[in-house]
Design a protein around this nucleic acid. Sequence first.
RNA 1: CAAGUUGGCCAAACAGUCGCUGAGGUAUAACAACCUUGGAGGAAAGUCCGGGCUCCAACGGGCAGAGCACCAGGUAACACCUGGGCGGUGUGAGCCGACGGAAAGUGCCACAGAAAAUAUACCGCCAAUUAACUUCGGUUGAUCGGUAAGGGUGAAAAGGUGCGGUAAGAGCGCACCGCGUUGUUGGUAACAAUAACGGCACGGAAAACCCUGCUCGGAGCAAGACCAAAUAGGACCUCGUUAAUUCGUGGCCCACGAUGAGGUCGGGUAGGUCGCUCGAGGGUGUUAGUGAUAACACUCCCAGAUGAAUGACUGUUCACGACAGAACCCGGCUUAUCGGCCAACUUGGAUC
Length: 120
Amino acid sequence: MLNRFLKSQRLLKSDEFQAVRGTSLTVSNTNLLILAKKNELSNARLGLAISKRNVKLAVQRNEIKRVARESFRQQVGLPNLDVVLMARPGVISLTKNELRQCIDELWQQLAKRAQRCYSS
RNA sequence: CAAGUUGGCCAAACAGUCGCUGAGGUAUAACAACCUUGGAGGAAAGUCCGGGCUCCAACGGGCAGAGCACCAGGUAACACCUGGGCGGUGUGAGCCGACGGAAAGUGCCACAGAAAAUAUACCGCCAAUUAACUUCGGUUGAUCGGUAAGGGUGAAAAGGUGCGGUAAGAGCGCACCGCGUUGUUGGUAACAAUAACGGCACGGAAAACCCUGCUCGGAGCAAGACCAAAUAGGACCUCGUUAAUUCGUGGCCCACGAUGAGGUCGGGUAGGUCGCUCGAGGGUGUUAGUGAUAACACUCCCAGAUGAAUGACUGUUCACGACAGAACCCGGCUUAUCGGCCAACUUGGAUC
């Protein structure tokens, strides 16, 4: 069951995105930025914000979203967070495999940060 | 065989596992789950034209503004397509073309050049008169005329070539070509061919303004229609007539109304549903047409998401995979694009 990706695991409303955007729990590198906020559910939820300004072509935006979703789907250890993944201009230069690796690493960082932040 | 032209088609293939999403089914109070079956493009792109659809406006007409501009046909429509004409270009198949009007008017043509549209006379050429010189043939200068052949300038120099003609020249005359006018013939037409006449009058630029003809109401699916919390406010009905030095009508009391509670209604925000994909639709065939296309018959249902699906992994094969992602729907145009296949045709070479 863990490696599915249902609607309950996504952010669907504009309000939910706004709520996450106001938080301070972030993880990032030169290509991507992840914002997160604790929710009251039993699982994590993912929202994608790939702007047209940073990634110009629709095909590239779609590809980033697919890689991100696939990566998120296969994560097991994430706590109950609302997560928004944003793209920075550098992502275009990455290949698909590099991008995947990059996102996987960010999830691990996020899990650690979250544990430290919310356990105290 | 090589090089090329035009038109059409494809856009790595197959298998397995996992995942997303539309529809149908099983099942259920409902969700979840399971099964079956669909799930990006030739440009989905740029948003440059043309339509459908929706709402708004509207008696009709004109002006303004914008667009279009050889002819005929096709189409729902077009700035598109087909066929034809004309011009340009290529050995050729072919390709390219803001292709109405400059004799309606106003204006423009830099620099150079004598002169840039009323033609003109710088050099040159020629005649006459005259002066000087003379080897008596003439030469040089001046004056006054003729000339547009030659020179030089320019993107462009006022028809071209040849012969005649002449003092030198000149459409001055003639022939051919070009141009114009009027006919005739062919063609639906654009236009072409041809005859007679004219005798060159009519330079370029319409992408300077402009004139002529034709077309055009506006906004867009965030169109528009429906359902509809919470909160604030509104209308109506019912209940309560009290907790009150409350407020209004009133001189005061009574009374009535407001302030209260509940309900109903209307508008309408968040949110949701519809619009939404069966269509100027695809496939096959026949007929008409040079063709674009049309008619008829049979047949098929082929994305519909909404924080927004069409993907990931593994294996095998090959030529090792370009440009690129639907968002109301069609018809075009333009731009991007690794490579492959088919048909017709052209040029060159080889062989028989």
